[in-house]
Amino acid sequence: MLSPRSEFQSRVAYYRRHKEFNPRLVEDVAEQAREHGFEYIVSCVSEEAKELHYKSRAVGCEIHRAHSFLRFQEKGDALVAKGDFEHDIVDLVLDHFMMRFPRKKIVLLTDGKAYVGERRIVSLDDPAKYALERTSQSRLAEPDWEAYYDSQYIEARRNRKLAMRHVPKKLWKQFGMKEGVKLDQGLITAKLSSFI
């Protein structure tokens, strides 16, 4: 577990990437931390501390989802993925995958730009060079993944509500998640490719 000071720093660092970042909030919580200590902020006692917590958590959540749901397509020595982000997190996401695949060039297509990460350096490139093939966007058209995904379902444990809570509808578009189609329509026995 992080110390209250580190936790505070981490929350501020994430909050700075929030789409509604307001430096005034940081000043306010810093003032409260000076007066009551970092525990006061980390424990969300005040309304400002609570706002900092929720907004930094929203950024952390989006990073976590990007790590989970971005899907790559191999194009030569590059791994290319497409995703839309609410907050300013592209470099953090790229960094995660650069660490994971140091031999590869990581390309993230977002907001009409191509962010390229290679050997821990991030640059911009022409997105047309990395256009994804249609099959990659319809990732469940990939037969090996479809076979595996279908094999993991246990009919007797069906709990669509729980699945929908984990993968809310807005993510389906954000990360091109075609599993959503199956969850939405509840047609468990249908093949995923029939919806693509």
Partner: peptide, 21 residues
Amino acid sequence: RQRTGDLAGGGICHSFTPDGR
């Protein structure tokens, strides 16, 4: 630099089946 892959701290789920797992 030739290695591939690393560990992630939090449990990362890459998809969910209709049983919620």
